[in-house]
Nucleic acid binder design. Structure first.
Lengths: 198, 198, 198, 198
DNA sequence: CATGAATGAGTATTCATTCAT
DNA sequence: CATGAATGAATACTCATTCAT
């Protein structure tokens, strides 16, 4: 019961780390569910910590949001890179695109992460964004090499289209599969019959 | 019956109408620039009127926003109907789509108007929305008859895609023309070479 | 149809007087029903005039209220004087007391008129208050002479008791007749059996 | 179990409790002096705290007022019960009545508390009101048994009369003792000489 | 003179952030 | 280090009063 207890005697760093993780997790959920308007107090309450603790780890509401974004972007970037390094980058590109939209359509935070350009251009975000763009870029390049994607599209274009699909999916007004299908079709190389002038 | 008639000669709310218009105009600009978070006081200040004046014309912040939306939706609906009644509905559809995005890409309010489904379903908004959807529906039908648009797309799908394009255009990260081009291509009938499985 | 028409040719003073009366009447009703919190706009609307007209006749919301009070106090004072001049001042006193409470229990304005001491001590109100107090005083004196009312009660005491009864009646929690009966009993001369110490 | 116990040793909201009490105290004073129209900001200022602090303890202006009322009603009820359990309930009843009026004549809040029937019927208020009515009821019953109070008066009647006396005392226009004396006399059993018809 | 549009100070309430415990 | 109480700027909306038409 004294300081000899290995579990409770060093709650210092362990607790802090656990708290940070818990806050991040909860914030991610809450932002995803209810948007950025949720008060910090609510997040603290749901995470089972005091507001002060939230502020200890994230000096600002924006900083907290940024942290969530960074995490997400990194994960997405990793996924893209892995696919790019795989053998089927051609189909992988479209699968990735669909996947992203599927996953993030319920996730306000990731959408905001991708949509927020400029607003969060601090070091961390920029870096995470790079990771993401790089991964996506590799995947895109392979798909273009394989002739599956219009060669005049840049990574930024694709990211933008992804954000757009997310926005549409979140609308809930149309079948996401159909929407994504349309956009993916639009990204394929132009066949003679589809020339705008035709 | 001449200018002596006290009932009709009253020029009445000459400045009232001007104020209302000015508020609407300013609100439209400000909402477009800075989003819905702008305080009413700010709008009043920029319009050069007191808050009370804003509230006299629009009993609620939402009501003000709604008024902007209604105006916009109506105009857009009219435009679509006119094109539908014209001879070139096939190309008109795509022209309209591009036009919409061009016009509204700077306009946060119209985007929000279209994106907000359900939030503003009061009579006026609903009616204006109907006008818009009807006009777009006519245009779409013609374009599908002419074989220029995939026949499995509904008006709602198209509206959703339009909202998506607006979202993307507003990002400012990619060339709107390219983006809209991609989405328009995606809406054209599927040619053999574009079959997803291909 | 010209200035010869006696009905419409001189709407000047006539209209004004009618407007003033109408505003007063409506304000009396509205204050009685909903209390002083009612906006002036509401009163103007119900009276069928513009706010400006209300303000032309009563430079202030308080002034309007005061005017109502004055009218009421005067009427009440007159009634009391008449009774005092009649033959049955003894029973008349209690009848008057009960009447007052009955009449005013639904009437927020009269209650406020009586209850407002000091708040409205402008000339008019003071004068009307005097009229009222004088009438009541005469009635009280007669009743005291007839040995029907404790001789140590002053007009002010009686007025205060009346206000109290109004307050109680307005509560709606108890039968006004019973309440008034108790207070009236208390005002009668003390019989031996009722001596507090007994 | 000693001061080392982290669970019970936390003096915790030492200042929080102080602040809450201070706000309550100030609000009680201010409401008593100036009525319910006083802005919360004013109360906060006078209490030397920020508005937020007031709202932390009392989520609503009504809630703050309610808290004051509850405290008062409870205290009054307790006092009545104690007197009822004492030997001299007969004289105690009148003493209590006079006491109440004396104490509350300066206190707008208690008056409003008693006068407000229905407006504040939330759990707490209702409960406190019950405590009060119960205590008063016991005291009344004893006094009626002792033949000192008219047997046809109910607790509600008495409460109403008390409110009335408070209203009168607050007028400041008449000697409260005299007023209360009159009403108390009126509550005593009717002696032959006081029969209304006499 | 009547009208009602314009004004703007005033009010309750929220929430990001700081700081005493 | 954690806690949550305190802070106060900010915001939507109301209403008495003024003034152009």
């Amino acid at each position: 019961m004294t300081s000899a207890d290995p579990t409770t005697s060093r709650p210092l760093r362990a607790d802090a780390r656990r708290n940070r993780a818990r806050v991040l997790e909860v914030a991610q959920e809450v932002f995803a569910e209810e948007g950025l308007a949720v008060p910090i107090d609510e997040i603290a309450r749901r995470a089972g910590v005091g507001v002060g603790t939230v502020y200890r780890h994230f000096p600002t509401k924006d900083a907290l949001f940024e942290a969530i974004i960074v995490e997400r972007l990194r994960a997405v970037g990793e996924a893209a890179r892995e696919l790019a390094e795989g053998p089927e980058a051609g189909t992988g590109f479209f699968a990735f695109f669909e996947q992203m939209v599927q996953n993030a359509s319920l996730n306000r935070a990731l959408f905001d992460a991708l949509a927020a350009n400029g607003s969060f251009n601090r070091e961390l975000t920029a870096e995470a964004s790079n990771v993401m763009m790089t991964g996506l870029g590799q995947l895109l390049a392979k798909a273009q090499e394989a002739g599956r994607v219009r060669s005049d599209l840049t990574v930024t274009d694709v990211k933008t289209l992804m954000v757009g699909c997310l926005a549409m999916a979140r609308q809930g007004t149309a079948d996401p599969r159909l929407i994504v299908g349309v956009v993916c079709d639009g990204m394929r190389p132009v066949s003679p019959s589809r020339t705008p002038g035709a």
